[in-house]
């Protein structure tokens, strides 16, 4: 069997700051990390592979040359092979163009049983590439996956998160999953021995020529959406601090709340 995981290297958004003058992101000094959702997807992918046996994991990403380090981490976490899809032509891809590029790479690999993605990436938070990729591959998808069990080689039992709980689904292969880590998820840090082993695993770089496909559909040109402006969100007003004994503080707060239309309009 063949499992494929699609991952993304992202700036650690918890470290991102905005330049107050230019209103652009200050990326200098912001660490690049493996998207935490994707790390969970890789760990699950490797777990399922080990359970099945006779099965391999290919991990792919579309990104600049530096994205190599995110792939190396995936190899250290247990993936068998890495593919970096990298070319200037892919720059500026929106979610559709990204999914198109990934779909070409997966078709080039040729066969697979399950495609693993993180539910979303912490930089864009769109959660769109997974479903768009599934559609382009012509396979079913399950999003918001919390738990996977493989029953036999052709069937999965999946817990899918819903807004008020979860569903238990039964799914046939092939399919694409987008995974949601549990709140208690702590990304595994691979030991030095695994990091060294990762360096000996197959690592491929594919460019536009390798992928083939319709060149007009890559990157900025192939993107249907265009970002025309970015700016910092309007600042919130100053915080009104109340420091008083609990009774008085409660009185003051109650007054403020009672003026709010969420309470008056009931």
């Amino acid at each position: 069997m063949k499992l494929i995981a699609c991952i993304k290297q992202v700036p650690d958004t918890t470290e991102v700051k905005v330049d107050p003058k230019t209103h652009t992101l200050i990326r200098d000094g912001v660490p690049s990390i493996l998207n935490p959702y994707d790390q969970f997807a890789i760990e699950e992918c490797v777990r399922i592979r080990d359970q099945i046996g006779d099965c391999s994991v290919s991990v792919l990403t579309m990104g600049p040359p530096q994205a190599r380090s995110a792939l190396m981490r995936c190899l250290a976490l247990g993936a068998d092979e890495a593919i970096l899809i990298s070319d200037k032509a892919f720059a500026g891809s929106d979610t559709w163009a990204t999914a198109y590029t990934l779909s070409l790479a997966i078709k080039k690999i040729g066969f697979f049983d399950i495609v693993f993605c993180g539910q979303q990436a912490i930089d864009g938070d769109t959660a769109q590439v997974g479903p768009e990729l599934a559609q382009q591959l012509g396979i079913p998808q399950v999003t918001y996956v919390e738990k996977i069990e493989i029953d036999n080689k052709n069937k999965l039992t999946i817990n899918k998160q819903t807004e008020d709980g979860y569903q238990i689904l039964e799914a046939k292969l092939p399919l694409l999953l987008t995974l949601l880590p549990p709140t208690s998820f702590q990304p595994e840090h691979p030991p030095m021995s695994s990091i060294l082993k990762a360096k000996r695993k197959p690592f491929n770089i594919w460019d536009v020529e390798t992928l083939g496909g319709d060149k007009s559909r890559f990157g900025l040109d192939g993107s249907f959406t265009q970002v025309i402006k970015t700016y910092t969100p309007p600042k919130r007003g100053e915080c009104e601090l109340i420091e008083d004994n609990p009774k008085e503080a409660a009185k003051k707060l109650s007054k403020i709340l009672c003026k709010n239309e969420a309470l008056t309009k009931r």
Binding site: P11, I122, T230, Y231, T232
Partner: peptide, 18 residues
């Protein structure tokens, strides 16, 4: 279309003209 990105640190205006 206006949406937040980068953990709400930035807003983006987006169109799909074609």
């Amino acid at each position: 279309q206006t949406r937040p990105a980068f953990g709400g640190n930035i807003m983006a205006d987006i169109i799909s003209p074609n």
